[in-house]
Design a protein around this nucleic acid. Structure first.
Lengths: 229, 229
DNA sequence: CGACCATTTGATATGGATCAAGCGATGTGG
DNA sequence: CCACATCGCTTGATCCATATCAAATGGTCG
């Protein structure tokens, strides 16, 4: 059983992790307590932002583009745990090292925030501590939902994915997907072929339209919601 | 696709949730900062400890027996997210409500701890706050591992499960499983038949022995570890 | 002993993986 | 600016792991 999956592509070679190149220049960004003192940093498509088991020196917030976090099995099978979209925070760890790897799905800009600064703040301010905890708890909730997703059939997984993306991207019923079919497959625990076929099938059933391969129009949300169970 | 699964059994009727019956009498238990002020409470096999979306008034620590946390899809499919064994803490939420349901797998004793007390403590003591966060982060790590599990084949899932249980139960190579085949199936995203067949198959391959259906002897850990990938 | 429940085993069906080829868009070098 | 190589996606044919349906076995409790 060796389901084809992206065998962590070019990324491992063209790594551009912050930690290795030294910290980015400081920069002030006003906003919520966790938006403090971050430096915006560009990452090209498929470039690694951090690797599993690397020391968690920074945490991150997506400004533009999209990011995937994932883990890889010995034999190369990849499970994408989350897609992060603008506004989403990622790479926040309670422990010393990252539990997943992260890569830019498309050309992206990411706010890079020093973990030590936030941790020091949390030490003194219970509200900040609570926010950190809450962020981790939300990620846990997402992970638990994702487990439920992985026991459903292909149509249900795709429907769920499309509804999720439509809700998060906020463009009404028309969504421009930032990720490839392979990314979707590795997020949903399916093969690229099954993803493609299922999308075609949903189009045939008039649940969606596919003007281009990356653009999806939800034509019948309630049909998708029923699949979403 | 309606994979048979335990349709949340008797439990919903014979609920014995703490919140509904009023708090248990106070009782002092010495130990780590989170072991404070808990009252031991017995739960019979298959009895609900708390339900999804119920207010999280208490957190819990297994004293003896075993507990399962799970979520259920509309159509009844159940995904067990974790088995909790003696020493494990569960039901700790950053938000106001529980994200999963919890039931006793076998007759169990559980330490019931008032959440408000712990929260108040965390407000003043950054170390306690950090511990709460760390506990949630560990659960997140488990959930991420579990997602990886769910994309593997049946043999790999079973092998991984057996190694996990053997490590946690700490009885050398011989493990008495507290849970039924149905529980295992719902934990691994398989059917009860596939679980049974795969165990039989591993026994035929001399990787394990099954003196009784609940007792598993690991005869060849390295064979199992290879499957564990 | 008999009823019940959990587990195993057998036979068959099927959803999604695998293997393979074609197609359209995008980018590159001549 | 066009021809060609490349890449991502779709479609087709077939296979296989696991689900499903069904029955037998075994262990437990009254």
């Amino acid at each position: 059983m060796l389901m084809r999956t992206a065998m962590h592509p070019i990324s491992s070679r063209q790594t551009a992790t912050v930690g290795r190149n030294g910290p980015p220049p400081r920069h002030h960004a006003s906003g919520n307590s966790l938006d403090l003192m971050g430096a915006p940093m560009p990452f090209a498509r498929n470039v690694e932002i951090y690797g599993e088991d690397e020391p968690a020196e920074y945490l991150y917030k997506v400004v533009s583009g999209a990011v995937r976090t994932y883990r890889v099995l010995n034999d190369g099978r990849r499970q994408i745990g989350a897609f992060l979209l603008p506004g989403d925070i990622f790479g926040l760890e309670a422990g010393a090292t990252h539990g997943t790897s992260a890569e830019a799905v498309a050309d992206s800009v990411v706010l890079v925030i020093k973990r030590s600064a936030v941790m020091a703040l949390a030490e003194r301010d219970p509200d900040v501590a609570r926010q950190l905890w809450t962020l981790t708890a939300q990620e846990l909730g997402r992970a638990q939902n994702h487990m439920l997703l992985l026991i459903r059939n292909a149509q249900e997984r795709i429907a769920s994915f499309l509804l999720e993306m439509a809700d998060r991207v906020a463009g009404g019923n028309s969504v421009e997907l930032p990720m490839s079919r392979q990314d979707i497959a590795d997020y949903l625990g399916l093969t690229i072929e099954t993803v493609s076929r299922t999308l075609t099938q949903l189009e045939a059933e008039a649940a969606i339209a596919l003007p281009t391969s990356r653009r999806v129009v939800l034509r019948n949300r309630s049909a998708l919601s029923e699949l979403n169970a």
